[in-house]
Amino acid sequence: MSRKPLPQTPAWWHDGSTPPLHARLLATLYGNLAALRRTAYRRDWLRKHKAGVPVLVVGNIVAGGTGKTPLVIALVARLRAEGWTPGVASRGHGREDEATPRWVGAGSNASQVGDEPLLIARATGVKVRVDRDRVAAAKALAAAGCDIVVCDDGLQHYRLARDIEIEVQDARRRYGNGRLLPAGPLREPVERAADCDFRVLNLGVASEHEVQRDSGLGEWPMRLRVGVAQPLHGGRAQPLSAFAGQRVHAVAGIGDPERFFAMLRDAGIAVVPHAFPDHHAYVAGDFEFGSRLPVLMTVKDAVKCADLADAPAFMVPVDAVLPQAFWVGLLERLPPRVV
């Protein structure tokens, strides 16, 4: 059996203690450099580049996952319904050769394009481009016929001019201890969030009727609606309720594995948790659990594990659900579509 490194939850998410002096000093240096960079783009000392089409950026100001991928998929679906031809630009974190730009299709290999871009491509069917240079990615999408670009995890990529910024925040974690890296989880100061056009608050799994309106604090609630568990090796799809009262191996290599485990427990499932680091490169040995219980995993993990899990394995999809008023406000902010 392989020895898998279990991700440790950084103390900054839950510990109110003061970080070490060296971390605080580095955070101050990091903050000064980040502020200088923001100022340089704001005052046009550094040039912003336009893609030639509207650009909608989804991101966060904290390190780690907050639920951006389900929101990107929902944004693409809504834009298509409104007559747009969207494309998605992403870096493709964790892929083997991040220096090489690539197009992402449903048949792509996650090791070459990244797990999240592959998930987005399979879920939406739109053009997806991975490139460390987000400007180049956006321009490639525009040249390929996309009339709007959704930039995944791009708040800090100031070279790419944007029309709308959406910050995604985890409702449970928020900004942790409120300190900058490496003393805390912040990529940028909390004040940076005020520049975003929308703040989406990921509240986790709940029924659609619970999503009604803005909280009144400028935060739009996003709920995750659980879909039907899809088998990885053939067979029938099953509702999550079919696993209630059973023990299962639960696999999650995402920013917050506990969120996935809690979702399964809330469905009455007895979870044997297997947490892996975000963007983990799975091998067959990772699934040598010692018992052939059903395996449930996130869709982000499933794009890398179809040929690895020996026991009956299922991926559990989730859809982002937001208030109708959010979509109205978002569409009103977009420039007119060129027909």
Rank of each mutant, 00 (worst) to 15 (best):
R199N: 11
R199A: 10
V200D: 01
L201M: 15
N202F: 02
N202D: 06
N202Q: 07
L203K: 14
L203M: 13
G204W: 06
A206E: 13
H209S: 14
H209C: 09
H209R: 14
E210A: 15
V211F: 12
V211C: 10
V211E: 07
Q212M: 10
Q212P: 01
R213N: 12
R213G: 05
R213T: 15
S215H: 10
S215I: 04
S215R: 13
W220C: 14
W220H: 13
P221K: 11
P221E: 12
P221G: 11
P221A: 10
M222H: 07
R223H: 14
R225V: 14
R225I: 10
V226G: 09
V228G: 07
A229D: 09
P231R: 09
L232D: 06
H233C: 01
H233S: 13
G235I: 00
R236E: 14
A237P: 04
A237L: 01
Q238V: 04
P239F: 07
L240H: 06
A244V: 02
G245L: 04
G245F: 03
R247P: 00
R247C: 03
R247Q: 10
V248W: 06
V248R: 01
H249W: 10
A250C: 03
A250D: 04
V251F: 01
V251S: 01
A252M: 01
A252Y: 02
A252I: 05
G253M: 00
G253L: 00
G253T: 03
I254L: 00
I254E: 00
D256G: 00
R259S: 10
R259K: 15
R259A: 12
F260M: 02
F260L: 04
F261P: 01
F261K: 01
A262N: 03
A262R: 09
M263F: 00
M263D: 00
L264I: 07
L264M: 06
L264E: 07
R265E: 14
D266E: 11
D266R: 12
A267S: 14
A267H: 12
I269T: 04
A270P: 00
V271A: 10
V271S: 08
V271D: 05
V272L: 11
P273E: 10
P273R: 08
H274L: 07
H274I: 06
H274Q: 09
A275R: 06
F276H: 11
F276S: 05
D278N: 08
H279Q: 10
H280T: 07
Y282R: 03
V283A: 13
A284F: 03
A284T: 06
G285W: 01
F287N: 03
G290E: 05
S291G: 00
L293N: 02
L293C: 02
L293K: 01
P294T: 09
P294Q: 08
P294G: 06
V295H: 03
L296E: 10
L296D: 08
M297I: 06
T298H: 05
T298L: 03
T298A: 01
V299Y: 03
K300N: 06
K300T: 04
A302T: 12
V303L: 05
V303P: 07
K304S: 15
C305E: 08
A306T: 11
A306L: 04
D307S: 15
D307T: 13
L308K: 04
A309N: 05
A311E: 15
P312E: 14
P312F: 14
A313C: 15
F314V: 05
F314D: 03
M315D: 08
M315Q: 15
V316S: 04
P317N: 13
V318F: 12
V318G: 11
V318P: 13
A320Q: 02
A320T: 12
L322K: 07
Q324D: 15
